[in-house]
Amino acid sequence: MSGVSMGVPPQSDHLDQTADSTKPAQHQPHPPALGHVMGSLRVIELQLVAFIMVFSISGLVPLTDLVFPALISVYILVISRLAFPTLGSSTKSPELFRESRLFRLYVILGTTVGLFLPLAYVLGGFARGDDHAVRSATPHLFLLSFQILTENVISGLSLFSAPVRALVPLLYTARRVVVIIDWVNDVWINKTLPATAEFQDVAWFWFGRVLAVVNLGYFSMNLLCFLIPVFLPRAFEKYFKERDELHAKMAEDKRYPQQSDSSKKAE
């Protein structure tokens, strides 16, 4: 997520704000903890790159999903320059949501449902020789890995405004919902259980079915009930508020020299 942010977008914004707060020395009450967090992010990013490379060369990800991250990256770069550039010195990521216990539980649930369990499902499919399970869940894992990596990279830079940061999880999640629908079709319609299946085979069969449905429900809700109606509008609200404040300050700065020149001439 970064939304499933590491996955969830607000949390990546919060991490970026934490990173920015390390610049003044007086705002470093716990530098070892911060270093531990940032170091953990670097390790996670390396692991995601490894996942992406394995998924890419495995032949299990369709060409459309392989091309999608490249197209999104180009689009993000374009709109970050033409539509929603950063506003002067206001380059730090705004904190759109205050971290709460309920929000942390939401993020943990999304990470478990969207990343850890599907990864276990794919690895279990390799171990059991279940190519159908591996091929069904891999595109979702590939796109989610790219989403998390993109959000982490963007949150560590000061080149992207709040609307651009908010669009990353929204676009990736919208695409992944379509991919998860294909996953649901694969495990519920295209995959059948042999009549002589043992208990372990039945449990594995239903684990794949339930996991696909749970992912579809979670990320559909994340997209339709959080990212579109809540997170994206709040990002735009923050951006346009900062833009209006910047324009007002610039106009005031322009008026001040004029008033100063007129007072000098009067003297």
Rank of each mutant, 00 (worst) to 15 (best):
residue 30 H to V: 03
residue 30 H to N: 13
residue 31 P to I: 04
residue 31 P to M: 05
residue 33 A to C: 01
residue 35 G to I: 00
residue 36 H to C: 06
residue 36 H to E: 01
residue 37 V to Y: 01
residue 37 V to W: 00
residue 38 M to R: 12
residue 40 S to Y: 05
residue 42 R to H: 07
residue 42 R to K: 09
residue 43 V to C: 03
residue 45 E to G: 04
residue 46 L to H: 06
residue 46 L to Y: 06
residue 46 L to F: 07
residue 47 Q to K: 06
residue 47 Q to N: 11
residue 48 L to W: 05
residue 49 V to W: 12
residue 49 V to Q: 02
residue 51 F to D: 05
residue 52 I to S: 06
residue 52 I to E: 04
residue 53 M to R: 07
residue 56 S to L: 13
residue 57 I to A: 01
residue 58 S to P: 00
residue 58 S to Y: 03
residue 60 L to G: 00
residue 60 L to S: 09
residue 61 V to F: 03
residue 63 L to N: 03
residue 63 L to C: 03
residue 64 T to Q: 11
residue 64 T to A: 14
residue 64 T to F: 03
residue 66 L to W: 01
residue 67 V to L: 15
residue 67 V to Q: 09
residue 68 F to A: 12
residue 68 F to C: 04
residue 68 F to Y: 15
residue 69 P to Y: 05
residue 69 P to S: 10
residue 71 L to T: 05
residue 71 L to Y: 01
residue 72 I to G: 00
residue 74 V to N: 00
residue 76 I to Q: 10
residue 79 I to L: 11
residue 80 S to N: 15
residue 81 R to W: 07
residue 82 L to S: 09
residue 83 A to Y: 06
residue 83 A to E: 08
residue 83 A to C: 09
residue 86 T to M: 12
residue 86 T to Y: 04
residue 88 G to T: 11
residue 88 G to A: 06
residue 88 G to Y: 04
residue 88 G to P: 05
residue 89 S to Y: 13
residue 90 S to Y: 13
residue 92 K to M: 07
residue 92 K to F: 01
residue 94 P to D: 06
residue 95 E to D: 08
residue 95 E to N: 05
residue 96 L to P: 02
residue 97 F to A: 14
residue 98 R to C: 00
residue 99 E to V: 09
residue 101 R to D: 07
residue 102 L to Y: 11
residue 105 L to Q: 11
residue 108 I to V: 10
residue 109 L to W: 03
residue 110 G to P: 04
residue 111 T to R: 00
residue 112 T to G: 14
residue 112 T to A: 14
residue 114 G to D: 03
residue 115 L to E: 13
residue 115 L to N: 12
residue 116 F to D: 02
residue 117 L to I: 15
residue 117 L to E: 07
residue 118 P to F: 02
residue 119 L to F: 13
residue 121 Y to I: 12
residue 122 V to E: 06
residue 126 F to C: 03
residue 127 A to F: 09
residue 128 R to V: 01
residue 129 G to L: 08
residue 131 D to P: 00
residue 133 A to E: 08
residue 133 A to K: 07
residue 135 R to S: 12
residue 136 S to P: 00
residue 136 S to I: 02
residue 136 S to H: 01
residue 138 T to N: 02
residue 139 P to C: 02
residue 140 H to E: 12
residue 143 L to E: 06
residue 148 I to G: 05
residue 150 T to C: 09
residue 150 T to W: 11
residue 151 E to C: 13
residue 151 E to L: 09
residue 153 V to R: 13
residue 153 V to N: 08
residue 154 I to W: 13
residue 155 S to M: 14
